[in-house]
């Protein structure tokens, strides 16, 4: 009997999304922690935004996994753009020091 999902590509992709969410969480909360030295409001805003993006990515990846969503292009763009913004914000914080 052949497996329904040969090579489990969907499951591997979901796990890949999970690893990315973990990496994003670590980087964004580390940034929020660093921003605490600058301003409490900035740190809270960064943490809240990060949390929102994390929840969004988890929901999107689950829906992509189930095949009930058609937004792979949009979701990859969101992840790409937020990671880019994370880097830019940190560069600004470093330059401000």
């Amino acid at each position: 009997m052949r497996p329904i999902d040969e090579g489990m590509p969907r499951e591997r992709t979901l796990l890949s999304w999970r690893r990315t969410v973990l990496a994003f969480s670590i980087a964004s909360f580390a940034l929020a922690r660093l921003a605490l030295a600058e301003s409490l409001t900035l740190a809270e805003s960064l943490a809240a935004t990060a949390l929102l993006v994390i929840v969004l990515i988890v929901v999107i990846s689950m829906r992509l996994y189930r095949g009930s969503m058609s937004a792979v292009g949009v979701s990859t763009f969101i992840v790409s753009a937020t990671t880019f913004l994370l880097g830019v914000i940190e560069i600004l914080l470093v330059l401000k020091d």
């Binding site: 990315t20 580390a30 940034l31 660093l34 470093v94």
Partner: peptide, 26 residues
């Protein structure tokens, strides 16, 4: 799906660089 995983691997690489930059600064 393989393309999607490659994209995610690149994003994690980018995040690793960002985390490294944050750590070095912290």
């Amino acid at each position: 799906l393989a393309n999607e995983r490659t994209f995610l691997a690149w994003i994690r690489t980018g995040l690793a660089f960002i985390a490294g930059g944050i750590a070095l600064n912290a």
